[in-house]
């Protein structure tokens, strides 16, 4: 365990070193993503313009969901995407060989290969949104609520990561999956809305297949102090379930690896 923490620290250090080499690229990336966060608020303001509330969500509380969305997007783009998109290339080019030759867990190694430290700016944008939302609400979040929402953030990250692992595992079968990755990013975009606004098939998909609720809505509700203990527990169980399934699928996928000829 300690060894893996050390490897994680080393991976981060190396990514920061690389980040320094291409700093302008990353600064521009960071600025662009903050711009996108801003633009992302436009549909929200339009949706809430005429109505005071949608399914119990007001503009201010929905803003909290957007905050979590922004934070999670930062985690996705900064800590999950870079590594896992690298794997897809490695599978196609056969350089995953080197990862599989290492005497350490392959899933861990591929998941910590690359970070984009500048994406931490998304986290700052998220905090800005939280501050704005709670000023609109005219109160501060409770200390326990903050703790609870952080715990749910861990669940959200785990779910997001597990889904990504499942998507990547598909690369072992189909080899190229730029489209699949793109599709996932598009679907993830729905997480900026509270999950209860979706109805019918979408509600089912976003609850069980791609649990957007666990990702952004429940952490937001926790921060607002409106989340039931039952939902919190179900979130945790759901997140662990996703992690276990993705681990099992990953292990099978490794066996399917055909490498690429020299």
């Amino acid at each position: 365990m300690l060894r893996y923490l050390r490897l994680l620290a080393l991976g981060l250090r190396i990514s920061v070193t690389v980040g320094m080499q291409y700093r302008w690229n990353f600064v521009i990336d960071g600025v662009v993503s903050i711009l996108w966060t801003g633009l992302g608020l436009i549909p929200l303001t339009i949706a809430f313009h005429a109505r005071p509330a949608i399914h119990g969500w007001t503009f201010a509380t929905a803003l909290v969901v957007v905050g979590w969305f922004s934070l999670l997007k930062g985690i996705l783009d900064g800590a999950i995407n870079p590594s896992l998109l690298t794997v897809v290339d490695q599978i196609r080019q056969g350089t995953l060989d080197f990862v599989l030759l290492k005497p350490a867990d392959a899933q861990f190694l591929v998941s910590t290969a690359r970070f984009e430290p500048w994406k931490a700016l998304d986290g700052l944008a998220a905090i800005g949104i939280f501050v704005w939302a709670f000023r609109l609400l005219g109160r501060a979040p409770g200390a326990l609520d903050v703790l609870g929402s952080l715990a749910l953030l861990a669940c959200a990250t785990l779910v997001l990561y597990s889904i990504w692992i499942l998507v990547i595992a598909a690369a072992f079968w189909v080899v190229r999956l730029d489209n699949l990755a793109y599709l996932f990013s598009s679907v993830f975009d729905f997480a900026r809305w509270p999950v209860s606004v979706f109805r019918g098939v979408l509600a089912i998909v976003f609850t069980f297949v791609i649990p957007l609720g666990i990702m952004t809505t429940y952490p937001a509700e926790a921060l607002l102090g409106t989340l039931s203990l039952r939902t919190a527990l179900l979130s945790t169980v759901g997140a662990l379930g996703f992690a276990l399934i993705s681990r099992a699928v990953w292990s099978r996928a490794i066996g399917r690896y055909t490498s690429a000829s020299s």
């Binding site: 060894r3 050390r6 490897l7 080393l10 991976g11 190396i14 290492k102 005497p103 350490a104 190694l109």
Partner: peptide, 8 residues
Amino acid sequence: TMNRAIYE
């Protein structure tokens, strides 16, 4: 350095 850490 990376390999050193991985191979302990």
